[in-house]
Amino acid sequence: MKQPELGKRLADLRQQKSMTQEELVEACNVSVRTIQRIESGEVTPRTSTVKILLSALGADLESFKSTIEITKSDEKLRTSESWLHVAWISGIVYFVLGFLDAALEYGRYENEFEVDSVTFYAFSKLLYFVSYSFFMFGLIRLGDYFTNYLLKITGYLMVGLFAIITFFDIFSIFYSMSEFNLMTLGAGESICVGATGIVFGIGLMRLQDSMGQLAKIAGIIEIVAGFFFAVVILFLLGYMMLVPATIIEIILLYKGYEFIKSERLKS
């Protein structure tokens, strides 16, 4: 047990017993200053001191530890529930913004941008990245909850790649690059996204036992999309495959949110 959590739990237990610090002093013969410093997290008491305080509060060390573990578990469930709630909503935003992003990319390569359009392009790219990040962090959270480290690691990699791609997209608008350099950069991005997407799809498939067939289907689609991106010349097919993959993943996040919420209410 570490501070400041230990002190907070002791203070909560004392208040549950409707005892003041002075009354606790009388019950256990520990100085009021010591109790104040323990409860505020200033010092870490010896185990023997904790036992004396708990005895005066009508509790024992083992039950006290169990209460802390249950509280930690409940806090973890609440955190996961909140993340998944934000994630599935962000997934919808990301999905909608994807169509806007496609339209902007078309306008960019058709040289239809003016100054105001360039500013809007940069802003929309950043918003697109933020919504994608929250969406992916939800899937990463699922990986963490179900001990799926492959999904967690590749999820972080996907966010990192998306950040790099977003940076270069915005950078290339304000600083001219040759067509060859743009094509080379695009090919490199496509290969990296494809390779990572294949592994990410495998991670999603590993959620099948916990989240059902939808996870398997989403994983297979991600693998196929990853293959198309890796081939480069088929990247448009990869983008098309991401449409059903994203929809299924949003549903997965919502199901995960409902599952963790029900688990928290049971505990």
Rank of each mutant, 00 (worst) to 15 (best):
Y94N: 10
I153L: 09
S82E: 14
F171M: 12
D12V: 03
W83S: 07
L182P: 03
A56R: 08
F168E: 11
K2C: 05
L104A: 11
S90H: 08
Q213K: 15
L214S: 10
L77D: 04
L84C: 01
R9E: 03
V93E: 13
R37M: 12
R206S: 09
I68N: 06
I165F: 10
L161C: 06
S82T: 13
I198C: 08
A122D: 10
E189K: 11
V96H: 03
L182H: 01
E81P: 00
Y94P: 02
V231E: 12
A11S: 12
G226D: 00
F228W: 02
Q213H: 13
E189S: 11
F113T: 12
Y94S: 13
I89N: 00
I198F: 09
R264C: 02
T196V: 15
I223S: 02
I164Q: 07
L126F: 15
L127F: 09
C28W: 03
L100R: 06
T154G: 07
F229R: 00
A27R: 13
T147S: 13
V118S: 01
H85C: 12
Q208I: 08
A218L: 05
K2F: 08
F168K: 13
R9H: 14
R14I: 09
K261C: 10
S262Y: 06
F134L: 14
F171H: 14
Y257H: 15
T184N: 15
T196P: 09
L161N: 07
S73K: 15
G219T: 01
A27C: 06
E112V: 09
F228H: 01
F200K: 03
Y145I: 03
K266I: 03
L104P: 02
T49D: 10
K255W: 10
S133I: 06
V50M: 03
G98K: 06
Q208L: 05
I191V: 14
Y149F: 10
S117Q: 06
M240V: 11
L10H: 00
G188Y: 01
L207I: 04
F113V: 07
W88F: 15
D101V: 10
S55D: 15
K51Q: 13
I170A: 02
P45N: 12
T47W: 11
T20F: 04
P244I: 01
E81L: 02
M211Y: 03
A215F: 00
T67N: 09
Y128G: 07
L161Q: 12
V30T: 07
A230I: 04
S133N: 05
S178H: 09
L157Y: 12
N111G: 03
L182I: 08
Q3L: 07
R264Q: 07
I248E: 11
S172T: 08
I260Q: 12
T147G: 01
E249H: 01
N111Y: 14
S117C: 06
C192M: 12
V115M: 08
G155T: 02
Y132M: 13
F167C: 00
Q16M: 06
I260K: 13
A215K: 02
F99G: 05
I220Q: 00
A59F: 04
D74L: 11
I221H: 02
P244W: 01
F180M: 14
N111M: 11
T166M: 07
E62Q: 12
F167T: 01
Q16R: 15
S48C: 06
R206I: 00
P45R: 09
S18T: 04
G107Q: 07
T147Y: 15
Q21T: 08
S63F: 05
F235I: 11
